[in-house]
Simulated scan of single mutants.
Amino acid sequence: MPKNVVFIHGLWIHSSAWKPWQELFEQKGYATTAPGWPGDLETVEATRANPDGLNEQGISEICNHYADLISTFDEKPIVVGHSFGGLIAQELLANDLVAAAVAIDPAPVKGVKILPFAQLKSGLPVLGNPANRKKTVALDEKQFKYAFGNVLTDEESNALHAAWTIPGPGKPLFEDATANFVRHSPATVDTHTAVRGPLLLTSGTEDHTVPKEVTVAVAKLYADNTASVTEYHEYEGKGHSLTLDSGWNDVASDVLAWLESKGFGPGES
C-alpha cells in the first residue's frame, strides 16, 4: 500500500503550514511532501514579497502541476487537501492518479448550486472586483478572521494570519463561482461514474469559507457512485482554520484513523 502522502494547501495559505501534519504523519511511518502551487515561492516571506508568479494560476494549472509532481512517484500516493486543495485532491482521485484522497472543507465542485451568505462574504475580497481574476489578492486580518478564524480569539486568528497567509490568485475563485454556467469548467469532477480509491470529505460546522451545507451537497453528488467509497466526517464547532489552529491535531488524528480503516496505514501491505 502507498506510504507517500502529498499535502495540498488552499487559497491564501502557504504550503509550509502543513509542517505539523507532516511531522505527525512521518512519526506514524508515512513519507510526506507538501509542494506549493505553481508560482509559490519557498517561504511565506518570499511569496509575499513577490507573488506575481501566482497571477492567473487557475484550477487546471494547479491540478496539472500536482499531476506532474505525482507522476514522478513509484506508486500512487495518498493526497490530503484543504479548501481549494480539497477540490484538487478530488480531481486527482477521479482521474485515478492517487490511491486515496482526503478533502478537508473543500472548495465546491461543479454541480453544487447553493451559495450561503457566509461563503459569498468570504470570497468578496476577490470576487468583488472583476479585475482580480488576473491578479493575486491578500486578505487583511479582519478578512482572515471572518473567512478562517471566526471561531478563534482575535489573538490566535491574527497569529495565524501573520504566520501563514500569502496572496492568492483570483482566477480559481472566479472559475469556481461560475462553474455551473461553464460547459467545460475546470471545477468539474466525475462524482458519478469514476472508479477510484476511497474519498473522505470533511466539514467544520462553523466554516464560513466552505459552509457545512456546501460540503454536504458535494457528498450528495457522490451518492449514486456505488463503485467507489465516499465518506463524510463533520467537526463540531470548527471553522476553516481547522488545519492550522490549535485544534489541528484532532482533525489530523481523525484523518490518520480513517486511512488506517481503509487499509492505507503505513504498515499495511
Rank of each mutant, 00 (worst) to 15 (best):
V255S: 09
E260P: 09
A217D: 14
V229E: 15
P38M: 09
L200S: 07
E206P: 00
K212L: 09
L139M: 04
H233T: 00
D74I: 00
G85N: 07
I59P: 00
K28M: 12
T243L: 10
V5A: 10
V137T: 11
G85H: 00
V80I: 15
R196W: 03
Y30C: 02
G197L: 10
T178H: 07
D154W: 11
K238S: 08
W37R: 08
T178W: 01
G247C: 12
R48Q: 04
K142E: 14
G168P: 01
E23N: 09
K3Y: 10
A94H: 03
K3C: 01
L152A: 03
G29V: 02
A217C: 03
A138H: 04
S71P: 02
F84P: 01
E155T: 07
H82V: 02
L199V: 02
Q57G: 04
L221Y: 06
V80G: 01
G170H: 05
A223Y: 02
P106V: 03
D68L: 12
C63Q: 03
A177G: 09
H65W: 13
P20W: 08
D176K: 07
T136Q: 09
H233A: 14
W164V: 03
V102A: 15
P211F: 05
G86K: 06
A138K: 03
Y146G: 09
P186W: 02
D140M: 12
L199R: 01
L115E: 08
H208R: 13
G81F: 13
A94D: 07
P51D: 07
K19I: 06
I59G: 04
N150K: 12
A99D: 13
H14G: 04
Q90F: 10
F7I: 03
L127D: 09
D96Q: 13
P198F: 10
N4E: 15
P108A: 12
T72N: 14
G36E: 10
L41E: 14
L69S: 10
Q119N: 11
Y232G: 00
N50R: 05
F117K: 06
A103D: 12
P38N: 06
N50E: 15
L139Q: 02
Y235Q: 08
I104R: 00
I114G: 11
L24E: 14
V6S: 08
S15L: 13
F181Y: 09
L93T: 02
I70L: 12
G39Q: 03
D40T: 04
D207C: 00
W258F: 10
P167K: 06
W258Y: 13
T165H: 07
L97C: 05
I62W: 11
T33P: 06
L87D: 03
L92H: 00
E26K: 05
A162K: 14
I13R: 11
T47Q: 12
D207M: 05
A252G: 08
G53P: 04
A257G: 11
E45T: 07
N249A: 14
K145T: 10
F174P: 01
S269T: 15
P125G: 06
E45V: 02
